[in-house]
């Protein structure tokens, strides 16, 4: 056994096996992150002006329209209709409880067997990390996994 092997043995002592609930929570978080619009912060967040400019921007795009009647501000529309997705779903359960609706339109669970891929390299995987349940394909990918993502989950 090389140095890396014995190092791992030492580390294994400090390592507890991740329970099922934590594994599921981690999987759900990973899926949720695939819905994100941005992974970094607003690059203009430090600019006081830009926020103001944004809400005022283009409220009155055409002079003649403004002259004829008062156009509502974007702020009005933001307040009038703003509902996030969970709120819309909750509302739909009350207003539109009978299928077909958004919830009932979700396709069924697949009947085909799940396939397993190495989380590190993407090729077919035969092995499962005993700590966290992540898949890997080889000794090399196992080491990468343990040194990167698996470590985050050990005490």
């Amino acid at each position: 056994m090389s140095g890396a092997g014995s190092k791992r043995a030492v580390r294994d002592v400090n390592r507890r096996v991740m329970d099922q609930a934590t594994r599921q929570r981690r999987a759900r978080k990973a899926l949720e992150s695939l819905e994100q619009d941005n992974f970094h912060d607003d690059p203009h967040a430090d600019l006081v002006m830009s926020k103001k400019a944004l809400s005022l921007f283009q409220d009155h795009p055409e002079e003649e329209r403004k002259a004829k009647r008062k156009s509502r501000t974007t702020e009005y529309y933001k307040q009038r209709f703003r509902k996030n997705f969970p709120q819309l779903l909750e509302e739909d359960a009350v207003q539109n409880p009978n299928p077909p609706n958004y919830l009932s339109a979700q396709t069924l669970n697949s009947l085909q067997p799940a396939r397993h891929f190495c989380a590190v390299c993407g090729f077919s995987s035969k092995y499962v990390c005993v700590v966290c349940g992540t898949r890997y394909c080889s000794r090399r990918c196992q080491e990468t996994h343990e040194e990167t993502r698996c470590l985050k989950w050990t005490a």
Binding site: N38, F57, D59, P61, E62, T74, K83, N84
Partner: peptide
């Protein structure tokens, strides 16, 4: 590193202020 402000969330219109700004621009002279 573009930062996106999108009118839609999970395929449905939720950010009306963004959508209205985009429509105003699209229908507008510019």
């Amino acid at each position: 590193s573009l930062y996106f402000m999108l009118p839609f969330q999970k395929g449905y219109l939720t950010n009306w202020d963004y959508q209205k700004q985009i429509w105003d621009y699209m229908y507008g002279k510019q």
